Simulated scan of single mutants.
Amino acid sequence: MPQNFTENPSALIEATFNQIHAEQMVGLPFINERLRVSAVGFTLFEGDWLGVLLTPWALNLMLLPGPDRHWQAFTVGEKIGLKLPSNDYTFIVGEHQALGQYLACSVRSPVKDIPGQKAGLQLAGDLSRLMTALPAVNVTEVDESRRRLLGGMMKQSAL
């Protein structure tokens, strides 16, 4: 069942995934020992907590219920399509006793090629900012349509 987070869940996410790392992931061949668990850029987006989770095994977008949000119960492993400003993403329902249900979208797994924590945090921070960024518009197209609009208005006022 989803849990409702009135405060930023970053510390709880980090504690939960540090525990998972210590109890279930240590020594696995795909672990990047140069990385630590970090919850990056979690902020309220349309009422829910959206951010990036960097772990020694993956880089994921994560979504958790925000204040006064009541998600329906999902089936763990169920795929949910979400449209964010930057793109459409497929999230998978996860669940942990400490977090309740959450949605995660794998961006990169494994993460063996990330050289260290500083690079991992930079990548996670960039991703956090980009996932909710509005798509860029070709400036030339905007300028041309503005010129047409203004040009039309100027011609009408000259008459």
Rank of each mutant, 00 (worst) to 15 (best):
Q117M: 14
A124E: 11
L61C: 08
N32G: 07
L82K: 13
F30Q: 11
D143S: 08
K112C: 02
F74R: 10
L28N: 10
G100S: 07
Y89P: 07
L44V: 00
R108F: 10
K79G: 01
A22S: 08
V107E: 12
N60M: 11
Q72S: 07
P9F: 02
Q19F: 15
A133H: 15
L63C: 13
H21E: 08
V40I: 15
I80E: 06
L50E: 14
P115M: 04
S128T: 00
W57A: 04
G94A: 00
R147E: 06
L44Y: 11
D48E: 09
T55L: 03
D143C: 09
L44R: 04
L123G: 04
L82Q: 15
I114W: 04
P85S: 01
A124N: 14
R108I: 11
D48R: 03
D88G: 12
K112W: 10
L99D: 11
L134Q: 05
Q101L: 07
V139R: 14
G51V: 01
N18C: 02
C105L: 09
A136Y: 07
P115Q: 02
Q101I: 03
A124Q: 13
T43P: 00
H96K: 13
A11C: 08
V52S: 02
F30N: 01
P67E: 06
E78P: 07
G51Y: 03
S128C: 02
P115H: 04
I92R: 11
N138H: 07
G77P: 05
N87A: 13
N18E: 15
R146H: 07
L44P: 02
Q117L: 14
N138V: 06
F30G: 00
P9E: 03
I92P: 10
T16W: 06
P85C: 14
D113A: 06
A136D: 12
V52F: 10
S10K: 04
L123S: 01
I114K: 13
R148D: 10
Q24E: 15
F17Q: 06
V26C: 00
S86P: 04
T140V: 14
M25N: 01
D113I: 07
A104N: 01
A136F: 10
L53P: 09
V37G: 09
I80V: 15
F91Y: 15
L123R: 07
R36D: 08
L54M: 12
L103M: 13
P85M: 10
V107N: 03
L134I: 08
L123F: 08
A22H: 04
D68L: 10
P9C: 05
L84R: 03
P65A: 14
L35S: 14
L84A: 07
M131F: 10
V37Y: 06
E33P: 05
Q97C: 12
P67N: 02
S109Y: 14
H70W: 12
G66V: 02
L121N: 12
V107W: 06
I20D: 00
V139L: 14
L103W: 12
I114H: 09
A124H: 02
A136M: 03
V137D: 12
L59C: 04
W49M: 00
G41K: 01
N138Y: 05
L63M: 11
A15H: 13
I92C: 10
V139G: 02
